[in-house]
Amino acid sequence: MSAVQARRLADAELIVVPYRRVSVSALATNVILVLLGCFFVLPLLWMLFASVDSNPDWAIKLPSLTLANFADVLGREDAISSFRSSLILAGTTTVLTTVLAFLAAYPLSRMHIPFRRSFMLAILFASGLPVSMLVVPVYQMYVYLGWLDSLYTTALFLAASSLPFAIWLMKNFIDAVPLELEHAAAIDGASTFRILRQVVLPLTVPGIAVTAIYTFINAWGAFIIPFVLTYSPANQPGPVEIYNFMGSHGLFKFGDLAVFSLLFSVPVIVLYLVMSRNFSGAFNFGGAVK
């Protein structure tokens, strides 16, 4: 009788005590997180609600539903042309950066190159230089070369400025590919280019995708470089157009402004969601800087 009772008490202790201790801190953790989440959601909610509200203002409020704002923005020629410009600018930048970074990262990862370490350090240093420093000399160069106001030459500079980080990212991905496969291919007589195309390329597809998407997201949002290097209205990419819109009459048309920036944000969010699985791997910096 007493033995049974003793066993019951032990059971109760085992279950109840640790369970209560865990639940208090777990509850606190989740509550704090939800509150922090509100801090992140509230500004976003304004954009979502105002975009479908027929009479929006600065505060978040339940919208009186309408699609007129969407019709308005999609009917604007400057809005459509800014999407076209952004696509050209970000697309060209991404293709250039990704191809060059892949080609450069392979020898930096695998081959014997004099001063390789110094080169990688210089690359790391270069990716930290502020664009503000480069914008004046590049503007001067572009004036001299007659390259101003073209989306393709602007993309050329965007590519150059995103290349250092892309090389660094890509090298980390190639470093992770096992060397044995390339040795086997080399012994079978494959040339370096063939190894690159048929062995390394297929194995680094996730890394290439991460690099490309990272570059695209940055180029899609790039503001100061196209702001300085292009001037004709037809060449203004989305961020510059939204900025102009805010400045001219956007502050009276909250709804249109919300729709414009919402539509402009959708592609990068979709791209991120596509890649989110592979994305966090890019943040294993660990002790990268020593």
Partner: peptide, 21 residues
């Protein structure tokens, strides 16, 4: 995901929604 979406958004969008906020 919400925290990361805030980071992925174009800067101009963040500027606008915080301006409104």
């Amino acid at each position: 995901s919400i925290v990361i979406v805030a980071w992925v958004l174009p800067e101009i969008t963040v500027a606008l929604i915080w301006y409104a906020f």
